[in-house]
Amino acid sequence: MDQALAKTASSAPLLSVDGVTLQYKTPDHLVTATYRVSFDIQRHERLVLLGPSGCGKSTILKAMAGFLHPVEGRITLKDRVVEGPGPDRMMVFQEFDQLLPWKTVEQNVAYPMRVNGIGAQDAKERALDALAKVNLSKFADAYPHMLSGGMKQRVAIARAMAMKPDVLLMDEPYAALDALTRRKMQEELLQLWDDIGFTLVFVTHSIEEAVVIGSRIVVLSPHPGQVRAEINCAHLGLNERASPEFAELTGRISHMLFDGQNVAH
């Protein structure tokens, strides 16, 4: 993993967030979610946005997807400013209802490709291929309501990957899963990355998940979100969870997030 990182470190960033301030309106307030946030993502990186609830990490991700426009700064993908949502930045959501209930699993995965002009046969092959990668080939003809939460998330990941986007955006995709399923899904995601090497932006509020999933972590301060640190952790994965290094890093991040307050994890 270190090698993959070193190879791309010198090239131009794939996606860059440059001084982005994001605001949204509630009935009473104009809320500033993030303040002048900047960071880059290189190809093949697994970048994790980590921060406490309400630090605007999901808001940044939505802006990267094109659902929100920065009031200041800009987001560029391959040197082109992001204007709106599009299939070059497929997104996996936290909610289980992101699959289309009226389509079978296979049709769900194939649909975004069909929308973007890929032929039926081609789309079907790629869909089945993607489903095989997340071990759901058996359920290709099932409807989403027959699947468990974890399986639905795997379909959503397959759907996003089959599209071969420039960057895969994941918004706390495992937050609504039980702990055991979540561990399994993390393992699978890392395995997939080993196979394909997609570029990933992953939002989470779990320090442990961030260290396991990420090759690089952007730590955001509490509301309004600002970049507190960027940390390399490609050398720490699921197998290193018990290592002193892992504990040292999670301790360090926890210290950054909570500024030395004594917070029980």
Partner: peptide, 29 residues
């Protein structure tokens, strides 16, 4: 129709009438 489904549809690149027929009508069926 849930916000998640709408956003999912829009990340696929659906807009206007295609969005209505591809997402809204079946979701509201």
């Amino acid at each position: 129709v849930s916000e998640t489904l709408r956003m999912a549809g829009r990340t696929f690149g659906l807009k206007g009438l295609r969005f209505v027929f591809g997402i809204l009508i079946p979701a509201a069926f």
